[in-house]
Computed example of a mutant assay.
Amino acid sequence: MSVIELTTFTVRPDRTAAMLAARPGMVAAFREGRRGFVSAKLVRLDPGTWLDFVEWTDDTAWDESKAKGGDDPRIAAFFATIDALVSARRGARYDDEQDGPRRVRTIAYGPHPSQVGELYLPPGAGPFPVVVLLHGGYWSALHDRRGMTGVADDLVARGYAVWNAEFRRLGDGGGWPGTFEDVAAALDAVAGLDPALDPARVAVLGHSSGGQLAVWAAHRAALPGDAVGASPGVVPVAAVSLAGVLDLAKADRTRLGAGLPDPATAPDLPDVMPAAGIGEGVVNLLLGGHVDDVPERYATTSPAALADTGVPVLAVHGAADDVVPPSYSRSYAEKVASAEYLEVAGAHHFDVLDPAHENWARVTGWLGKHLPAGVTRG
């Protein structure tokens, strides 16, 4: 069981940017000076109202932090941006306990609020094989890891430990190189998350833009030594891409995501996606330029451009996907010998992510072949 602190506050629109700029410093100060701090997440309820969702290991840790108040200048700087406190409550999370030791918990792998993940453990002592999940959403802060909870529940029921990782995204400090640094760090963190995990038996699975990140993670061992994400501490034994953007050069040239909301016409999203450049496609925003401008970045991030490491990859794509064209997966699989392409007749973009879809059995069957579920003891 953990303690959740729920604080609702208002911030004037003209001070929103200052509040968000002060937030990383506040969280860093909490990690350094507040015993029992686990994670923090901001939720925007409306343009001027925010919910701060903070997790602590126990009541005493929360009380100690409250007593300290704004003793650190970084914490005080954040508090100074707040217009008014609406409410402050705390409660206990009971979903973390299932008739025994805590089976699901939030763990930070870095100081940024988005450098966290949920670790799901199946019953037993382990060591368990691990599936790392990477969510989609155009690499943007418009979407988060909650989109993968259905998949996490299904895989845990099959005997896998699951690490549903969050990472910095566009509008949240991500893009180049932060998003890739975080995915690499989240994967490597598996080696130290919990003694019940087997870091030698890890697979990575992602959807849409997360599919690109998952397959990129599977190719990290082949990256040049000075590239972002090189020299992996944890090397996946398999990777699954569901409707993945596996050819970033092609996605850039076809201006994938050019129709995303523009904050100029969607004023409730000014801190999520930058207004400039959306019409040029989201890959341009992700990598800080088009393929002809920064070809070296595409060469070390686009799965279709990376050397084959021999890690088995399953690239699944719905034939009726009108969000990410199937050709983005097909062109990757045609170039990489260790990749298998599976096109699902009649399936749309989110069908391949649905454990209730008839194709899911093919995905889990392939995964079970390369990463058998259950406990293996030496």
Rank of each mutant, 00 (worst) to 15 (best):
Y94R: 13
Q98N: 13
Q98D: 06
G100W: 04
G100N: 03
G100M: 10
R103Q: 01
R103D: 12
I107T: 02
Y109T: 02
G110Q: 09
P111V: 07
H112S: 14
P113E: 10
S114P: 00
S114D: 11
S114Q: 15
Q115N: 13
G117W: 01
G117E: 07
E118P: 00
E118G: 04
E118I: 02
E118T: 05
L121H: 07
L121Q: 11
L121G: 01
P122T: 00
P122Y: 10
P122H: 06
G124A: 14
A125N: 05
A125F: 07
P127L: 15
P129A: 14
V130E: 05
V131C: 12
V132K: 12
L134M: 04
L134Y: 03
L134R: 12
L134P: 00
H135N: 11
H135F: 05
G137H: 11
Y138R: 14
Y138N: 07
W139L: 13
W139M: 15
S140G: 09
L142R: 11
H143T: 02
M148Q: 14
G150W: 08
G150S: 10
G150Y: 07
D153H: 10
L155M: 11
L155D: 01
R158H: 11
V162K: 10
V162H: 12
W163Q: 14
F167L: 09
R168V: 07
G173D: 02
G175V: 01
W176P: 00
P177K: 04
G178K: 06
T179P: 00
F180Y: 08
E181A: 07
D182V: 03
V183R: 03
V183Y: 01
V183G: 02
V183Q: 04
A184G: 03
A184I: 02
A185Y: 03
A186I: 01
A186V: 01
D188Q: 14
D188T: 03
D188C: 09
D188M: 14
A189E: 02
A189D: 13
G192Q: 11
